[in-house]
Design a protein around this nucleic acid. Structure first.
Length: 871
RNA sequence: GCGGGAGUGGUGAAAUGGCAGACACGCAGGUCUUAGAAGCCUGUGCCGUAAGGCGUAGGGGUUCAAGUCCCCUCUCCCGCACCA
């Protein structure tokens, strides 16, 4: 049993001079130097062999940045969240993989080259160095030596080429000519996912043009169903992201039906896609998209139609430019042709309409005005007939258009009359198939991923065009290089100009090569890969980043995957996050990995805003992380990013708030430094054993109260890390603890708190600060006489016994309104609570002349409450 | 139009159906100082001198009890948007 040593504390403290002021500008660089000197400080433990880690694994990942050269606050927030988690999980005894790298290919490097004549490679590598300095200053616990990758280096991008060849072999990469999105500013093609509202994702005010080009595509549509269905089994992903992906994939079940065109050869037919084949008896016209192949045919011999269609296309272009596409008025033109409804032999006029999308379904529809709002609007405008074929079971009086499929039945629909729509859809599709004019079909909004880019700074596509005509049919008629020819290196000496065409096409030494099959002269593919290829699998490379014989070792990947926690911005919901799911499935089917999804849990943090708007150069509201660190320190900056809002919400950056955190850290510093000599002077045996309950037997009231708050704080923070991630309230809890310790200073100085208690308070406080303010934690740990590494210590364990309150507060309500708060001993009987609540003066006054109808006593772990209901 | 999120003090925010506004910023007063800065102490939802009353976008409901659950309406943000 430890006796309380009076005056000890006082004596030691009395000798201390004016404590040093908290000076992050001195502390942080000093610790950074110590940490930087140890390349394995944050390395994960081995995953195989005799040294294999016995700990459970935890893969903590933040999205890798593009090396623009400048870290912004969004990065700081993202990485502060991930770093707090990684540090916490290490202290909780997990084998943590916490990697970082650079998404280093892409257009900005070429633009910079144009602007100031720096080669893209040099420019990129310089930016990486710059940003790495910034990230090190923040104290992020990445395993740089073991994991760092830069996607622009051949050690990395050769595996992009390797995967590409594997996909060619598997029929997943192919070349074809098609209409593609062209950004005039980027001077390259974009994938559908990179077109946002008709504009380029990098140039939000630049309209994307349509061009017909030969392109390489990856067959992501092969996985459309799996990508969609998998979303249902991913509870660790935000519903928002899953919904966005569902919409993007856009699976739609329906049927194709062929309508023969009258007066043309027997083979001429229009195939329409419909999800409501049950309404086909209500079809009163056929509508084609202006770009439909038949329309292109017909305009040749019909000048009037040609003019109308050309106008339509022009108008759509204008609407897209002004952003009005979507609420553009419906209009159309009759072609004069007709087609036959195969279900009832009716002859329907064929129109061209501006509301029919060329690239969805078949670009042709059957128009059923009675049961489709859009067709209804169109038919009314042009006086087309409206034929009702679905009725409610009781009457036909419902307004048109009537789109319900529930509790209704078909009318005037031949042999299907009386069937429900759902039954009829199935039966009619089967009928069409049996008679050879249709079938059940599923269409998707998702299209194959166009990966060719007419740019220099990207991964060369490892294909050649043989002049002798050697052609690999699997590769779309060109020749795939053998694996042994990899990597196909990007030439270093290159002149970047604004000329059209792929810059690589102007480098003769690159272009001219030999055919791997016949040895004859051949031309290399001069397009490079979309940079989203790089980021589709980078997190697998992290598990084995120095492997020169394979993209990674399967055993290592299988150990670490799936990622336990992935953290990043929601802006990648349908770009990176859908591509990387696809890539994972491809790698699984190649036998490289076992998992079918890359990440168990995904967290999308909110934006950092300033003055109510997203930080941007054009708004002039950008806050520089460097400036913040300079003024307040890295600890204060990253801690503020966690304190100002819960991590999933947008965060308003207020510099006064950072100053506030800095003041708080200064208080912690002063407090700890003041008592550090006392803690240091204690025998390490006692010091290191502070959680043993016997240390606190015979505890004073002051000490017990402090320990109670301490253990409540530990419990709260531990639970929050495991649960809801409200780091803002975690930090608030630490502040409450510090406020309380500060207020108890007189008691501590007077020796009314045992040394063991003071030591436990300050040691646990320091440990809890580690995930949020690692520099300060390291400093204070050392000041308390420790030589160990603070973030390698075990996370403190909450002791429920010490956390228990001796007294409870019991609010008493009368008719639901608070009247008083009683203070009662913890563990008091319900009957006593009941009696005490009625005995209270204020309560009694309210009961005067009334009858007590109910006397409710709620006793829950969260608290006790009384409500007296009177009449 | 569809889908998702949000609406609480001067501000950022907190509250497993159980004391609304924890924690912090800002502000005010005080203390220290030749002075200022920093620190420290006190106060700070609104109305009211007070007792007290009123308050979580607005309206209704369920409940002993609603910021929280249900219904309707409004506003803001994000995503999708003629997807047949």
């Amino acid at each position: 049993m430890q006796e309380i040593e009076k005056n000890d504390a006082q004596g030691l403290v009395g000798q201390a001079q004016e404590p040093q002021r908290y000076n992050p500008a001195e502390i942080e660089p000093r610790w950074q130097a110590v940490w930087d000197a140890d390349a394995t400080l944050y390395a994960a433990e081995p995953v195989s062999g005799p040294e294999k880690s016995s700990k459970p694994k935890f893969y903590c990942l933040e999205m890798l940045p593009y090396p623009s050269g400048q870290l912004h606050m969004g990065h700081v927030r993202n990485y502060a969240i991930g770093d707090a988690l990684a540090r916490f999980m290490r202290m909780r005894g997990f084998n943590v993989l916490h990697p970082m790298g650079w998404d280093a290919f892409g257009l900005p490097a070429e633009n910079a080259a144009l602007k100031n004549a720096t080669p893209p490679r040099a420019w990129t590598l310089k930016n990486i160095e710059q940003m790495k300095v910034q990230m090190r200053r923040i104290g992020l616990s990445y395993d740089w030596a073991g994991t760092e990758i830069a996607t622009c280096l051949p050690e990395y991008y050769r595996w992009n080429q390797w995967f590409f060849l594997k996909m060619v072999e598997a029929g997943l990469a192919y070349r074809r000519s098609s209409k593609v999105n062209w950004c005039p500013k980027c001077a390259t093609v974009l994938a559908n996912e990179q077109v946002v509202g008709g504009c380029c994702w990098r140039h939000e005010d630049t309209l994307v043009e349509q061009r017909e080009l030969e392109q390489w595509f990856l067959r992501i549509t092969k996985y459309a169903d799996e990508l969609l269905d998998g979303l249902d089994t991913m509870p660790g992903w935000p519903e928002k992201v899953r919904t966005m992906q569902r919409n993007w994939i856009g699976r739609s079940e329906g049927a194709h039906v062929e309508f023969r065109v009258s007066g043309m050869s027997n083979t001429a037919a229009i195939t329409v896609f419909t999800t409501r084949v049950d309404t086909i008896f209500g079809a009163t016209s056929i509508q084609l998209a202006p770009e439909h192949p038949l329309v292109k045919e017909w305009v040749k011999s019909d000048a009037g139609l040609a003019t109308a269609v050309a106008e339509m296309i022009a108008q759509q272009k204008v609407a897209r430019e002004t952003g009005d596409i979507g609420n553009i008025e419906k209009h159309g033109v009759a072609t004069g042709k007709t087609a036959v409804n195969p279900f009832n032999g009716e002859t329907l006029p064929i129109w061209v309409a501006n509301y029919i999308l060329a690239d969805y379904g078949t670009g042709a529809i059957m128009s059923v005005p009675a049961h489709d709002a859009r067709d209804f609007e169109f038919a009314q405008k042009y006086g087309l007939p409206i034929q009702r074929v679905i009725g409610s079971l009781t009457s036909l009086t419902t307004d048109l258009p009537f789109e319900d499929e529930e509790s209704v039945a078909l009318v005037d629909s031949g042999e299907w009359t009386g069937r429900t729509p759902v039954e009829a859809q199935e039966a009619m599709a089967r009928f069409a198939e049996e008679h050879g004019f249709g079938k059940k079909t599923t269409t998707y909004r998702l299209k194959d991923w166009g990966v060719s880019r007419q740019r220099y700074w990207g991964t060369p596509i490892p294909m050649v065009y043989c002049t002798n005509g050697h052609a690999d049919l699997k590769a779309g008629g060109v020749v795939a290089l053998p694996e042994s020819a990899l990597p196909v290196l990007l030439p270093e000496q290159i002149e970047i100009t604004q000329e059209g065409g792929s810059p690589l096409g102007r480098v003769a030494e690159f272009v001219n090569t030999t055919c791997p099959v016949c040895g004859g002269p051949a031309r290399r593919e001069t397009d490079t890969m979309d940079t989203f290829v790089d980021s589709s699998w980078y997190f697998y490379r992290y598990t084995d980043a120095r492997n020169s014989g394979a993209p990674f070792d399967s055993e290592k990947a299988n150990y670490w995957f799936p990622i336990d926690q992935y953290i990043g911005g929601v802006e990648h919901a349908i770009l990176h996050l859908i591509y990387s799911r696809f890539w994972t499935k491809v790698m699984r089917d190649l036998g490289l990995i076992r998992n079918g999804e890359p990440a168990e849990r995904l967290f999308t943090q909110g934006m950092v805003i300033k003055d109510g708007a997203k930080m941007s150069k054009s708004k002039g509201n950008v806050v520089s992380p460097d400036l913040m660190i300079e003024k307040y320190g890295a600890d204060a900056t990253r801690m503020y990013a966690l304190f100002a809002a819960p991590p999933d919400r947008d965060l308003e950056w207020q510099e006064e708030g950072v100053a506030g955190i800095s003041r708080f850290l200064a208080r912690v510093y002063r407090l700890t430094v003041k008592y550090a000599p006392m803690v240091r002077a204690m025998e390490s045996r006692v010091r290191g054993d502070e959680t043993a309950p016997e240390q606190f037997a015979g505890q004073t009231a002051d000490g017990a109260a402090l320990l109670r708050t301490l253990h409540q704080t530990i419990a709260k923070i531990t639970a929050d890390f495991d649960g809801r991630w409200h780091f803002n309230t975690c930090i608030a809890a630490i502040m409450i603890l510090v406020n309380e310790i500060s207020a108890a200073e007189p008691a501590m100085d007077a020796g009314r708190v045992s040394r063991a208690t003071v030591a436990e308070l300050l040691r646990s406080l320091t440990l809890m600060l580690t995930p949020f303010a690692p520099f300060l934690a390291a400093e204070l740990w050392q000041q308390m006489g420790e030589t160990s590494v603070v973030f390698q210590q075990a996370w403190p364990v909450a002791d429920a016994e010490l956390a228990r309150e001796s007294e409870i507060e019991v609010p008493v309500q009368v008719n639901g309104k608070l009247v008083t708060v009683l203070r009662l001993a913890a563990g008091v009987e319900e009957a006593e609570v009941r009696a005490a609540s009625l005995a209270d003066e204020k309560v009694a006054a309210r009961l005067e002349g009334k009858t007590v109808v109910k006397h409710i006593v709620i006793a829950k772990p969260s608290g006790t409450l009384v409500n007296v209901v009177v009449r």
